[in-house]
Amino acid sequence: MDTPLIAVEGTYEEMGAEVGHRTADLVERSVETYLRRFRDKSGLSSADVLRWGQTFLDVARAYDPSIAAMLAGLAAGAGQPVEHIAALNARTELLDGTGYHDDGCTALAVLPKYTRDGHTLLAQNWDWHPEQGAVTFLLATRDPEGFAVLTLAEAGMLAKSGLNSAGLGVCANRLQSDRDQAGAGVPYHFLLRGVLQSDRMSRAHRKVLDVPRVSSGNLLIADAGGEAIDLEVAPGAFGALLPRDGLLTHANHFEAELPLEDMKAARSGLTLLRPERVRHLLEDAAAERAVGLEHVVAALRDHYSFPDGVCRHLDPDAGPAEECHTVYSVVMDLDARELAIAGAPPCARPYERWALEEVFKPDAAPELCFDPAADDGRRPPAW
């Protein structure tokens, strides 16, 4: 498997401990990487990181006890200070103001009335530092009540883009505004896990909107019930976007009218065009009510304005600190509770498809699909 899978079951503390134990070496590398970034980019001392980690651990306890329990278990299992694990999950907040601006992400959803199979589709390319690919994996959790989550996760962290057994999924896009500040609000990656812990759309909204926030971010949420919504959030403000002609797309700038200054729109690579580029690539199939997963994959592999397109490649003119590419590409069928994932670069790698009901089996293995090496020049094979 190109993408490791860590599947655990039990209470949230037990699951965290098992994840920490099984990924201890990766967690150590991730902690070292982000402690260096916190120091070099944000000027945070070791004592500062421990203090902020404790602050965000207290936030987790108030926001969602299951998240706090997983953090504590993960730290114990990995042999790390719990404050460092909490700080990892607040890395967006601790890196704000560093001057790093060229991360990206392109996300999309297709409503079931516009898909060939009548299923809700959700997908994303995650663009970030190349070194994080080696410490990122698929995390599957199932609690004693049978509620399951399958999500991409950096080592030591609990969520990114993923889906759950209720048929609800989320994709993440980094945003930045002049409202972002230090403080004891709910970190962005806690919000992502909060959505994935939700058993219905209304609860997911409350986990994102009805909480204090100290940073900006975007969450594209969709479900097997056939709806999708994009939530742009910032400290003290939020906006919502709904699908047009069956499609909902987003990148790294604010699109809703909000009382803030967008700090990324002018700087983040091609963000102003990536959402419309994806829409252009999908709109004909959507008009025919025939969007298939092969159309979504083709859009995620698009190279318009190379190397800064939807499928992001390393820019040879960028310095080491500014290196950014598509680390992982994720495609989800929310009705089937299936997730397919491809590493860097997704234009040249097959996707590995996982069914949520299969990942907890001892002999679980993914099915390869959309393999460029097997393509004869026509569109990628459907699932």
Rank of each mutant, 00 (worst) to 15 (best):
T3V: 13
V8Y: 02
E13P: 00
M15L: 01
M15S: 00
G16Y: 00
E18D: 13
V19I: 09
V27D: 07
S30M: 12
E32P: 01
Y34R: 01
R36Y: 06
K41P: 01
A47V: 06
L50I: 03
R61I: 08
A68T: 04
A69S: 10
A72F: 04
Q80W: 03
T92G: 08
Y100H: 11
Y100F: 14
D102M: 12
C105R: 04
T106N: 07
V110Q: 05
Y114K: 13
T115W: 10
A123G: 12
D127M: 07
T141A: 04
P144S: 13
G146K: 00
G146D: 05
F147G: 02
F147R: 01
L158N: 06
K160H: 09
G167Q: 06
V170D: 01
R174Y: 09
L175K: 06
Y188G: 10
L191G: 07
L192N: 14
R193T: 01
V195M: 08
R203A: 04
R213C: 09
V214Q: 14
N218P: 06
L219V: 01
L219N: 04
G225K: 08
E232Q: 14
A234N: 10
P235Q: 04
A240C: 02
E257W: 02
E257K: 01
D262N: 06
R267M: 15
S268W: 12
L300S: 04
L300N: 04
R301D: 08
F306K: 15
L314G: 05
L314A: 12
P320K: 07
E322L: 11
E323F: 07
A340S: 13
P346W: 02
A348V: 05
E352F: 05
K361P: 00
E367L: 07
A382H: 07
